[in-house]
C-alpha cells in the first residue's frame, strides 16, 4: 500500500470528491427550480454513490449503480421531461402557505438527518469475529445462483411485468390525444 508515497492522500482526495459529489448532487436535485437540472443533480449524486460503493469494497455494485441509475433511470427521466414539460413555475406567490410548507419541509428534513445521524453514531455496532465470504464478484455470483436463485428469478419476473405494465399504461388514451 505504501509503495507510492502520496497514494494515501490520493485515496482520501478521491473519497472526499465522491462525498462532495453525492451531497452536492442531492442538494442540486432537490433545490433547483428547473427539473432538467434536478435530473443532472441526480446523475451527479449517483456517480458519487458509485465511488462510495467502490470504497465499500463492492466494485460490482459501483458498476451497476452507474449502469442502471445514470444509464437507464436518469435517461428515462430526461425522456419524460422532454414529453411532459414539467418545469415548475417561478415562485410567483410568496403566500403564507408556501412559506409554511417550506418551513415544514426543512424542519422534517433536518429532524430526520439529525435523528438518524445521532442514532447511527451512538449505536454500539460490533464487528463480526470472522467473515464467512470475501464479498467478491465470484461470491456474489455463487450466492445469486444458489441461495438467492428464487429472488433472482422473481425480480426478472417483476421487471417483465413492469415493462408490460408501462407499455399498457402509456398506450391508453393515445388515440384521444
Amino acid at each position: 500500500m505504501n509503495s507510492f508515497p502520496i497514494s494515501d492522500y490520493l485515496a482520501v482526495a478521491i473519497f472526499v470528491f465522491c462525498l462532495a459529489a453525492t451531497v452536492g448532487g442531492a442538494l442540486l436535485a432537490v433545490l433547483t427550480a428547473r427539473i432538467i437540472r434536478s435530473v443532472c443533480g441526480l446523475m451527479i449524486c449517483c456517480i458519487g454513490l458509485a465511488g462510495l460503493y467502490y470504497f465499500l469494497h463492492s466494485p460490482f455494485l459501483a458498476l451497476m449503480e452507474i449502469l442502471i441509475y445514470v444509464g437507464a433511470v436518469c435517461v428515462t427521466i430526461v425522456f419524460a421531461v422532454m414529453l411532459a414539460e414539467p418545469d415548475e413555475p417561478a415562485r410567483e406567490e410568496r403566500s403564507g402557505a408556501a412559506i409554511l410548507w417550506g418551513t415544514v419541509a426543512l424542519t422534517v428534513g433536518a429532524a430526520i438527518c439529525w435523528g438518524l445521524s445521532r442514532l447511527s453514531l451512538q449505536g454500539q455496532w460490533t464487528a463480526p469475529a470472522a467473515k464467512v465470504t470475501d464479498g467478491s464478484v465470484k461470491a456474489i455470483g455463487v450466492s445469486l445462483l444458489t441461495t438467492y436463485s428464487m429472488a433472482f428469478e422473481l425480480i426478472s419476473l417483476v421487471l417483465l411485468v413492469a415493462i408490460i405494465g408501462a407499455l399498457v399504461i402509456a398506450r391508453t388514451g393515445r388515440s384521444k390525444a
Binding site: 451531497v23 442531492a26 432537490v30 449524486c45 422534517v108 430526520i112 438527518c113 438518524l116 445521524s117 447511527s120
Partner: peptide
C-alpha cells in the same frame, strides 16, 4: 451521508 440523502429526499 445516508441519513443526509434520506433527509434531502423527504425534503
Amino acid at each position: 451521508v445516508a441519513a443526509f440523502l434520506l433527509a434531502a429526499g423527504v425534503y
